[in-house]
Design a protein around this nucleic acid. Structure first.
Lengths: 222, 222
DNA sequence: CTATCATATTTGTGATCACAAATTAATAAT
DNA sequence: ATTATTAATTTGTGATCACAAATATGATAG
């Protein structure tokens, strides 16, 4: 698998293991890694042109975060989803993310608001053209564009690990339902941000997550 | 620091890095590690009688989970608590743990119930005798005795990382307020389990967490 | 006694090596 | 052609080494 072409070049100020970790995260969050795909330490190390050492640190971290599995004997795989895991992810997202958005609200300035509006425009375009890869990317950017406005050193990394777990499954959705049926509540969220209405934002995010997870859930059961 | 004497001997079926990881977790969760205490990879490796390799994997994992910090330049420390981190931990706990308890309720059989009753007895004794170490231990056992009854592959590890973050601060509480003022809602929780009353259990856990975190919070501000 | 600078030590990081265990390929037997 | 058995390869794990950067130490000057 050609990995280097899909990954940011290494910033030499960063450690090799951080570079590999960030890159693998990016590949997972963008839906580049499909559930079931498998690797080896040496294989990833060769792809990145580093030794196995930084790969072990990066991959082991992702394994401990539940994004990857070390299993099926001696292979690193993108975790398979199960119904019960999915239900827990849904609960965790619904209970944490709206609150996280609420915490961030007061830190969203007009510059960031415009950024969000722009991201949402790109998202709509991706939906209308059926571009799943872009849909996944912009949806992530929209949510974390809100969350990252605040500084939440505990909740933000926690929520990121949730996204690492379900993101690989967007690809499956796309293969089945396409993007045409996708709904979101981003417009309501943007309005709530404009109004600085915390309750409205929390409700919008809750609805958005619920809608998105319902959609994913349907694909899971087919 | 003499670590080996406070740690389970190595089970040779386990990898060295898992042994080190579990041991460090145990030391953190039991309040053995106080905030600010610092280590080096080589130091820990010597304490455990292994090379730095498994220590790096274990410690890096704990760092990524937020339990340890690699900072203050080249030292591994138990993270300092801040008010904002604490508030986030409180929110996360209140939003996840009661629900986790609710999921577990139907899997708590009479054997486990008796175990919980017994743990709570030991907890009361620890409180009355001012034994903080035992208090921390039995409080952990009580909560996770409930949570672990269900199988929650997502929420349970998530919640465990929250406990890894605030547990070191019990020691500070103890040094200030003692155990005498400690209240809990374990009796209500036990009653709810007996009645198989999900709502009552969720409420009891919520109150218990709120109470415990309020107590910790007071110590944080002194 | 204090502050400054050069030296020595210790640190995390990444690469490489050794090894047993597991996987895969190749061979033989039916 | 299919299965059983053996050989070859590849795997994760842990130990060791090299090295630059950061820390600690000690000497020197005021």
């Amino acid at each position: 698998m050609d990995i280097l072409s899909k990954v940011e070049p290494r910033d030499l100020k960063l450690n090799a293991n951080e570079w590999v970790y960030n890159s693998l995260c990016q590949l997972i969050l963008s839906g580049e890694f499909v559930p079931g795909i498998s690797f080896t330490f040496r294989g990833i190390a060769n792809s990145f042109g580093v030794s196995t050492m930084p790969v072990r640190e990066a991959a082991n971290r992702l394994i401990s975060e539940g994004a990857l599995d070390m299993s099926e004997k001696r292979r690193i795989t993108v975790s398979q989803m199960t119904q019960s895991k999915f239900d827990e992810l849904k609960v965790a997202r619904l209970n944490l993310e709206p609150h996280l958005a609420g915490l961030a609200l007061n830190h969203i300035n007009s510059k960031r608001l415009n950024l969000l509006i722009n991201i949402d425009k790109n998202l709509d375009y991706a939906i209308s053209t059926g571009n799943v890869v872009d849909y996944i990317k912009y949806n992530y950017q929209f949510h974390f564009g809100i969350y990252e406005a605040g500084s939440s050193p505990v909740l933000l990394p926690l929520v990121r690990t949730l996204w690492l777990r379900f993101s690989p499954f967007y690809r499956i959705v796309a293969g089945r339902a396409g993007t045409q049926t996708m709904k979101d509540f981003h417009k309501s969220a943007i309005d709530a941000i404009k109004d600085k209405d915390s309750v409205a934002l929390i409700n919008a995010m809750h609805s958005d997550i619920l809608e998105g997870m319902e959609m994913l859930n349907e694909s899971l059961n087919e």
